[in-house]
Design a protein around this nucleic acid. Structure first.
Length: 161
DNA sequence: GCCAACGTTGGC
DNA sequence: GCCAACGTTGGC
């Protein structure tokens, strides 16, 4: 099956890209707390081991992509939805009938140059990419191979895709 | 099942 | 901190 490419948004205060590398066991982050059905479906149905991820930082001074990650655990029921004390607790979700899913991602490679959203918007080849569209709030987005490669080359690295 | 109200996202 | 857009909720 063909490998897929994704963009995952993370707010800076949640976890920076460097923190993912240095502060997490095995440089692996558990992507939990997503409460949007479209993003849920991507995690539950489509993200596969080894898929590439553009790690995107939102809600900060210079939104953009600092680096790459890979999927190391495919969709599994999000445990934070079962935990009453958790901010993301959802009574509609149960282990018998989970509503929400999570994946784990692993730090992979830092781009030589940070690729800002502003640059991406100014790049003709990235036209049509979800993230450059105004008011695009989806936190997990599918990315075409061409767009993925373009962002990597803007970041100063080449990746075997 | 419509749709107004509300909450959240996220760039600027 | 503003505010447009959009997903979700809930009354009817």
């Amino acid at each position: 099956m063909a490998r897929k490419y994704w963009l995952m948004k993370c707010e800076l205060e949640a976890c920076t890209f460097d923190e993912l590398k240095n502060n997490r066991p095995d440089s692996t982050g558990k992507w939990r707390g997503v409460r949007n059905y479209q993003a849920r479906n991507f995690m539950r149905d489509e993200m596969k081991l080894g898929d590439w991820v553009l790690f995107y930082q939102s809600n900060c001074e210079t939104p953009g992509v600092p680096g790459l990650a890979t999927i190391v655990r495919e969709g599994y029921p999000d445990p934070s939805a079962f935990d009453k004390k958790n901010h993301y607790y959802d009574p509609k979700s149960s282990s018998e009938k989970p509503q929400w899913y999570a994946v784990d991602i692993k730090w992979n490679k830092k781009l030589k140059n940070y690729v800002s959203l502003r640059e991406m918007k100014a790049t003709a080849e990235l036209e049509g990419m979800r993230v450059v569209q105004r008011f695009q709030r989806l936190s997990i987005q599918d990315v075409s191979k061409e767009h993925f490669q373009k962002v990597c080359s803007m970041g100063g690295i080449t990746v075997k895709v």
